[in-house]
Design a protein around this nucleic acid. Structure first.
Lengths: 234, 234
DNA sequence: CCAAAAGTGTTCTTTATACACCCATGT
DNA sequence: ACATGGGTGTATAAAGAACACTTTTGG
């Protein structure tokens, strides 16, 4: 798709359409967001969610995945449509509506903060996110709320952890997302009670205390249980 | 906004943007959807959700409300963004993406099937909806699923009933939406337990059996309780 | 007096919450 | 041996599920 000055004409005006993606990761007991520093105006130097214009031969999901790949190198991750933001004045360049997505990243796989297409990319702890470009502060709040709501009935938490994880890690994740403290014993009971957790006979080593056991999430078993009307409530 | 042949030119191609609205109502113990019969091609004669093109001076919410008003006469109702549909071939006229909404109507207020702008409008029981235009079958399924999920934690059921309703009516509504049978005594207990239902000392008359008492939903009390971290689980 | 639908309480089962001690490891 | 964090069980409280008879009203 090349820019050809004024090559596309329509009988009615049309908004430009973009997708943006709120990218969540989890590391060091903290929920984090991947932001891109804008290299050009408007909002040059401000941080924003990665995103870009929709091509004519792709749907919004494809666009969000493509932009994610181009701007951060991330691919093959959990991604879901969040909300479409369409305020008339949300972009100073003109009428732009954006279909926002949110992605959940196993941060262990993407620790290397790749400086790609769009300039600097950086993980920010959710509590230290600066004022963002466009309406992205609002977008982040919406994504945060969605994440908080969704984790109660879908096991999306596992998308944020490495394949093998420990019970304390999983609990920390839930505590970070839900912003509550949970009881260790009750948490383990509930998680194990779902029957979708596999025990590896292996523990954390090299720590000056009892090493936590590794577990992993059995996606196949989850699918199976879901089809039989199984409920994942934490 | 007038059509001026080829008056709007851009350097990159842009999709057209519309909003569509899935309109739910409840009557005679059945969940219903309001559809419009298409008067023009494509899909002439097929039924579809009302909707239309986004103007440059309105956001998607405003557009959805405007189209709802223009095509069905309905206004001042519950409306919420549902999902943005963007498959490349979803509209034979070209690239059109649609921001879909769903609305909940107190059917008692809008029984008159107004034949307006877009031709015939008609309420269909959800079980008797014919094959729809565009990707609207899919859209309806998404809306149905959202309604089913949402009613579990938000008191949106009341948007579908008249101001005063009886307990059996409310229960029928929940049963229709959730597609389950509920126990009369337990249902009443839970609903009354929320503390957001007001008892009117008035009953249904003119029926050949004990008339059911009227209740109404106290929105102010609900807001108050919500702010204190109250949960509306049915 | 009959048919039809509304109203109502109790028991049992399941789930949620609260809570404290011992264990393994590295320094 | 000690400091650190991991692992475990039980008792109590709350919520959910199951269930049957009486009441009101019009015909």
């Amino acid at each position: 798709m090349e820019a050809i000055k004024g090559a596309y004409t329509y009988d009615y005006p049309r908004p430009a359409v973009t997708t943006d993606c709120v990218i969540f990761g989890f590391d060091a007991g903290e929920l984090k967001v991947l932001l891109i520093e804008r290299a050009i105006e408007p909002y040059k130097g401000r941080w924003a969610m990665p995103g870009g214009f929709l091509n004519m031969d792709e749907n919004a999901d494809d666009c969000a995945r493509r932009e994610l790949q181009e701007e951060t190198g991330i691919e093959n991750v959990f991604i879901e449509q969040l909300y479409t933001f369409s305020e008339v004045d949300r972009d100073p360049r003109g009428r732009v509506i954006t279909v926002a997505y949110f992605a959940l990243i196993k941060l262990s796989d993407y620790k290397v903060t790749a400086g790609d297409d769009a300039g600097k990319a950086e993980w920010f702890p959710i509590s230290k996110v600066p004022a963002l470009a466009f309406d992205h502060d609002h977008m982040l709040r919406v994504a945060r709320t969605r994440l908080k709501g969704k984790i109660r009935y879908q096991p999306i938490g596992f998308e944020l952890l490495p394949e093998k994880f420990t019970m304390p890690e999983l609990q920390n994740l839930y505590e970070a997302i839900l912003e509550v403290k949970l009881d260790r014993r009750n948490f383990r009971k509930k998680i194990m009670g779902t029957g979708v957790i596999v025990d590896h006979d292996e523990s954390v080593t090299g720590v000056p205390h009892k090493g936590a056991k590794y577990y992993s999430f059995d996606k196949a078993k989850y699918q199976e249980l879901t089809e039989r009307g199984f409920n994942f409530e934490i």
